[in-house]
Design a protein around this nucleic acid. Sequence first.
DNA 1: ATGGTAGAGGATCTA
Length: 264
Amino acid sequence: MRIATWNVNSLNARLPRVEEWLAYAQPDVLCMQETKVADAAFPAMAFSALGYETASHGDGRWNGVAIASRVGLSDVVGGFGASAADPADAAPDDRGARLVAATCGGVRVHSVYVPNGRSVGSEHYAAKLSWLEDLRAYLERTCAPGDDVAVCGDFNVAPEDRDVWDPAAMEGSTHVTEPERAALAAVQAWGLSDAFRLCYQQDQLFTWWDYRAGNFHKHMGLRIDLVLVSKSLAERVSGALVDRNARKGKQPSDHAPVLVDIDR
DNA sequence: ATGGTAGAGGATCTA
């Protein structure tokens, strides 16, 4: 199975690039973030024409996540939903259309768009940390580490300094702080491995570059788009790739897609 | 000197 994740930064603006990319990259499953499209307006026909079923969770203007699959797509759940333990208990609500899950080819697939956090110490930063806590809790109550589970998306956290173009310049900024990294590590500690890191150990391999100031061409980026896989999948990872070519050319997203191949 | 660019929407807000 080839599973991919891509923050498309508006599916309406990016649909031609996404269609082109599906045709040459041939993923079995594609998790998308920042679709910025309401479910009712999701371009499902464009995907079905290419052989993909889709699940969307979006309310239109901001955020929005989706999954496209050509290996089946069932049991779609959007958002965190109610707590199974106690539905009345502060069930983390949708919190901005940042999570959708579906079962594709026997794998429980999650497309996640972690809040940006804006600035350290802001309410948005606190919300980012609590969102990651909610993600961990969601995994605990909806699946088991022994299952085939993939959590893919834009985590807005660079896990380590080697995932940062200039750690000194970034020090103290969002995406690299210790609390953010600890919150991500807590999600992974549930039982998930960073599939890209199973394949590559080099530094300076990025998935996002700011549109501004020519950052892409100056190699000023971050690795914040991750494919996290449970143990049973990690054992079968045969390759991974950041498709930098998809960040080039006409009207690119500011993120490149990440692909992971898993042996059946 | 918080710039620089992109997307949504129709003024700014978000990233």
